[in-house]
């Protein structure tokens, strides 16, 4: 890495065309893609929510499935953003050379990366919202305050898209992404309060969890779904925003090093 890779990004509105290109591809496969994205989180929600929920009176002051719903909204957003930024992003960057083609037009790598970031966040936004809608239909979302979860889903998507793009910039092949899923995504699923309240964890694990972005997404979503203002909302938003901005900046520098030789 040299200092040149870290020059501040300069964006143009042409990033929208990268986003539109990806949207057009997605529209072809929208229905199977949405069903695929929904199946996994809904299986967790129903399987654990009803199955395990029968044995629990209440968790954090609500039914277990209600507790789980807010967590699953966040974790499915994380999954969807990570998959799109890594597997699909890597296809476009490395396998199909779509980015190379775009860079011959009057777009810069900064524009392409911004388009990819916003696209992956948009796709994960649909996944997160779909889970939220299902939960609402099931009567698990008692308060209109849950509407505030909608922008939160997008912010969460940006944070995980940025992290995914870092992995894409470093990846020699698709296999590489398994490390990230095993070492980062799965631990976050289990440690960040999706399935059980954080205070069940030992203090050290709780401290680690506070550093992870999914914890902050769940800390915002769960009270909002239940109709309460999240107690540490400013901190939670700041952490997610910082993850989005910093990870994207790192991903951009790494991708400049990789492609602009």
């Amino acid at each position: 890495m040299t200092i040149k890779h870290w020059t501040p990004p300069q964006f143009s509105l042409r990033f929208v065309h990268v986003w539109r290109r990806n949207l057009l591809v997605w529209r072809r496969l929208a229905i199977p893609s949405m069903l695929g994205n929904l199946a996994d989180p809904l299986l967790y929600m129903f399987g654990l929510g009803y199955g395990l929920g029968r044995m629990l009176d209440d968790v954090g002051g609500m039914s277990y499935i209600g507790f789980l719903a807010a967590g699953i909204v966040c974790s499915s957003t994380m999954m969807s953003a990570s998959f799109e930024a890594m597997y699909s992003g890597f296809s476009r960057m490395h396998v199909q050379k779509t980015w190379d083609a775009i860079l011959n037009a009057p777009l810069t790598l900064d524009d392409v990366m911004l388009g990819e970031l916003v696209w992956a966040a948009s796709k994960s936004f649909l996944s997160g919202c779909a889970v939220l809608i299902v939960a609402t239909v099931l009567g698990l979302v008692p308060s209109p305050l849950a509407l505030a979860v909608i922008p939160l889903i997008f912010l969460t998507g940006l944070a995980f898209s940025g992290l995914g793009l870092i992995m894409t910039a470093l990846s020699p092949s698709y296999d590489f992404f398994m490390y990230y899923f095993t070492l980062c995504v799965t631990p976050m699923m289990l440690l960040c309060g999706v399935f059980f309240p954080l205070d069940q964890l030992p203090a050290a694990a709780q401290a680690v969890a506070q550093l992870l972005p999914l914890t902050h997404a769940v800390s915002l979503a769960r009270p909002l779904v239940a109709g309460e203002i999240p107690p540490t909302w400013l901190l939670n938003i700041a952490v997610l925003a910082a993850y989005a901005v910093v990870s994207f900046y790192i991903a951009l520098a790494l991708t400049r090093r990789r492609l602009l030789q």
Partner: peptide, 27 residues
């Protein structure tokens, strides 16, 4: 205009769409 050494046409699109999508990048 650039004709690169290795084809990087968009496999998800038809011939016409390849031209249309690429043209949009120029605004």
């Amino acid at each position: 205009g650039v004709v690169p050494q290795f084809d990087n046409l968009d496999p998800d699109f038809t011939i016409r769409e390849n031209l249309l999508i690429f043209g949009r990048y120029f605004g």
